[in-house]
Design a protein around this nucleic acid. Structure first.
Lengths: 362, 362
DNA sequence: CTGAAAGCGCTTACAG
DNA sequence: CTGAAAGCGCTTACAG
């Protein structure tokens, strides 16, 4: 017996529940109860167990707990990219709430690739997550089949609307750009450039383009007056699109960006090209990142509730996990923030005056 | 038997290894081998098992695998904040490499709080991570005790140097600001402002301040010529410190920021106050985020190898996990990027000329 | 309130 | 190459 315990020490075996039980002179079941529902254990034993845990340095074995209890206390989160302030913020907030509830967050990036997303879902499901957080609604039905077969709660982020059949925490992307376009039309704009993220497999980006078209239609403006450009997200891509669109014969007087960095790129490029914003062209963004209020001219944009989304998603999932039968989250409000990058459209009248002035100069 | 299987269907029990084994008419051990080392199974059985897995929709139970194999295929990562481009980038890259090697990443934020970090380490260890990624080296010895007791590989990020006893992937923060300060002294600057993140519990921030002092000492400039201000990270904090420091009787002619957003704030505030950068004051940053090349004036800064760090950390841990006895990673190179926000110090001579000019104007 | 015992779903020597 | 069996470290009815 002595040599055996000496052996145990030499190979430094992991401290288990059983060791704690032995040290505290109770059964393993009682130690387990102490860990999970301390009130179910008599006070004197509680103290003995607590001491034993401390002196032995016992840490429960998560996999064993998960296997026996059928709950892993892990939540999976898959973002299109973590390397993006928007999703980084959301992950930070989500993680904060999850870990406050003693849940661990397993994270993966889909890199905007639906195939990779499917593989990541499979991986996280294999890891045994108790719940899943996803961004956007449109994806392979296989993914939803996998999730529902597992019967775990899940929620989708960043999009919300009447026709969505999945639990979602988000806002109405169509209404957002529709509202923004309405505002620009009210300023006299009739020709628009739309800088969009790659539309394929990105329902949020698609919605935002739809919103522009919807507004145009409501105002009896032909869809041909909107030029849609799509690129990967990035400032340089915004610059490039700006250069491209302003070289058209009949360039737009207002540019609507589906992502804020596009708008920054457009503003930087305009400055470099000597194009006055908003005098000659108006530029609007989407998300209201910190730079938008600091850049010159400050950016008119849609403020989206990023942290709020993450918080509500966490609350929803945690409530579901604790057995509450909560109602599906309601769509969140968004605001149009009007700043200095948008203004009245340069009118034909003004062009006329300019022509007169130029003619007179001869 | 029939009624039993009917019952199984009605309560939709999880598909297990055993089910697959039965369907493929092999033993559970063979299915397990197929999953872990397919080559160890004869080809004909391989096909049968694969078919069974597909038709049954079998997904291995991660916790059971982890318990039996003593490996969870999870890596833990704790960042001071995920809501920060730097760490978001690192996490994205790290996650990419981990998931390519079929590892899952469990993420947590310490929110720059050492106590919270210790709790998160404990939580991740309990989750059963096979390896751990941390940022910075200085922390409670308890953390290192916990990790080494678990005998799992770990690596620290963002800092590297001769005296570090832990595996680390990073760069020399002292050398970075020392080099930058050398450069500024070379431009004739003698009085410095240093905008630092909160120094307590942040070894990177401390190192960066040390680097400035080191350079000063090497040039025989008294430490009193450096005014250290510390704040939480943020653009607004940069603005605030700039306003504060320029209201001194004898303000610095150069500002060294330990974090890029401080520098942005300083530049924005200078513009608002009508202070010329770099004519009246030079401003330098740290990290070289995308905005630094776009802002006016463009920012002189230290370029740090964020993605590189994450990639090397991933490679190191994955190598350790696959049993290779790899050497500790080497420190990474950093570059001083000289742009337009720094210039020669406004000399006393020039002030003299100005005085003369003003006097003459009377 | 407590303990003995079965079982969670795998992996892995071991023997063949 | 394969199978029977033990075991990974917990939880949870069950009986008391």
């Amino acid at each position: 017996m002595d040599s055996e315990s000496a052996l145990n020490i030499s190979i430094e075996q992991r401290v288990t529940l059983k060791d704690v039980a032995r040290a505290a002179d109770v059964s393993a079941a009682t130690v387990s109860r102490f860990i999970n529902t301390p009130v179910a254990v008599r006070t004197d034993k509680r103290q003995r167990i607590e001491d034993a845990i401390k002196t032995l340095g016992y840490v429960p074995h998560g996999a064993a707990q998960a296997l026996a209890s059928r709950r892993s206390r892990m939540i999976g989160a898959i973002f299109p990219s973590i390397d993006n302030t928007l999703f980084g913020c959301a992950l930070e907030v989500f993680q904060h709430h999850a870990s406050a509830a003693d849940y661990t967050v397993v994270v993966a990036s889909s890199e905007y690739d639906p195939e990779l997303e499917t593989r990541q879902v499979r991986r996280l499901l294999r890891s045994g997550v108790d719940a899943l957080l996803l961004v956007g609604v449109e994806r392979s039905p296989e993914v939803y089949n996998l999730i529902t077969a597992r019967k775990i709660p899940y929620v989708t982020l960043w999009r919300s609307g009447g026709d969505i059949l999945h639990p979602c925490v988000g806002f109405d992307n169509v209404a957002a750009t529709e509202h923004l376009t309405d505002y620009l039309i009210g300023l006299g704009h009739k020709r628009f450039g739309v800088f969009s993220g790659l539309l394929k497999h990105n329902d949020r980006a698609q919605d935002r383009v739809s919103g522009v078209y919807k507004s145009l239609e409501n105002h009896g403006i032909s869809a041909e007056n909107a030029t849609i450009l799509e690129r990967q997200f990035g400032v340089d891509e915004g610059r490039e699109m700006f250069r491209q669109i302003t070289s058209n014969r009949n360039p737009p007087t207002a540019i609507i960006c589906g992502s804020e960095p596009f708008a920054y790129g457009a503003i930087f490029e305009a400055a470099e090209m000597g194009i006055d914003v908003p005098g000659e062209i108006s530029i609007a963004g989407f998300d209201d990142l910190w730079l938008s209020s600091q850049i010159k001219p400050s950016l008119t944009t849609i403020r989206t509730p990023q942290r709020e989304m993450a918080e509500r998603a966490a609350r929803y999932l945690l409530a579901r996990l604790s057995g509450e039968q909560v109602a599906a989250p309601r769509p969140l409000e968004i605001d149009l923030i009007i700043r200095n990058s948008t203004g009245t459209a340069p009118t034909d009248l003004r062009s006329y005056e300019e022509v007169v002035r130029i003619v007179k100069a001869f």
